[in-house]
Write a protein that binds this DNA or RNA. Structure first.
Lengths: 131, 131
DNA sequence: GGTAGTAGGTACTTTTAGGTGACTATGGAT
DNA sequence: ATCCATAGTCACCTAAAAGTACCTACTACC
């Protein structure tokens, strides 16, 4: 087995936690990838526009995820302090860099989705066949 | 903004779900990255060896995660059917390919961790300063 | 003065992920 | 007979993530 092929650093974990684990707290979760994707596609996007683009997300979750993305510096929030309110979201440079990670994940998934689904089917069959 | 720089495919979601979201169900979660990392490092590893390498994981979670990784075809499980039991785990080719995804995530995290932590600090301060 | 649009916030509930501790089967050693 | 090691399973519980429904502030418009 070639040790140079794969996976993270050299220690199993830095201190307690894994870098990958930490990264997934920042870019993972149910909504962040699609929010990031939508903001990127639009360049600049307002709150309600975003909400309409993501019909299944609740207002609360959208706000919450945007706050986290803003806190971590992946997204920039500009409040124009007008009435009626106008708030615009866009990606920061860090957000754009995270985009390349999403892209890698996406490519991997697209490439191996069928394989994985076949594996699952075979696994299930082997379990129902002979427990 | 350069549309060619970043993020997944061209639609926000394939059907309901995102490819990235689906991928993270396969390779994400609290334990999978470190399990994969450990198995890779050892080449072949037995259950209890793995448990000792990951002192914080419970036996139940280890079994459960290994079953999912096996089901999805990232990990191969070989039961030698001896007594006392001897079961050996190793990565499949698909598992190795997932390693490159973990690697990308890991590199990104290592590169931007400080930036993210600074962003969080500044964000918190701006919130406590003036709400 | 009632309604609509904007960008949220709050309280409560459900669902999912993860954790704890005791238990099983097997055979060999003490 | 009892204990040990291996590789688990089972029932139960907590904590975190996500969802639902309703509320706020401000202004314009009718």
């Amino acid at each position: 087995m070639d040790k140079n092929l794969v996976i993270p650093g050299s220690e199993p974990c830095d201190d307690d936690a894994c870098a990958v684990r930490d990264a997934l707290l920042i870019i993972g979760g149910k909504w962040k990838s699609i929010i990031m994707h939508t903001v990127h596609n639009q360049g600049t996007i307002r709150f309600n526009q975003l909400k309409k683009s993501l019909p299944d997300i609740s207002q609360k979750m959208l706000t919450q995820q945007l706050r986290e993305l803003e806190r971590d510096g992946l997204i920039k929030r500009v409040d124009h302090e007008e009435m009626p309110p106008r708030v615009e979201y866009s990606l920061t440079d860090l957000g754009i860099s995270a985009g390349s990670v999403y892209k890698t994940i996406n490519i991997w998934q697209k490439e191996y989705l069928k394989t994985i689904n076949n594996n699952r089917k075979n696994y299930d069959e082997s379990k129902t066949d002979q427990g």
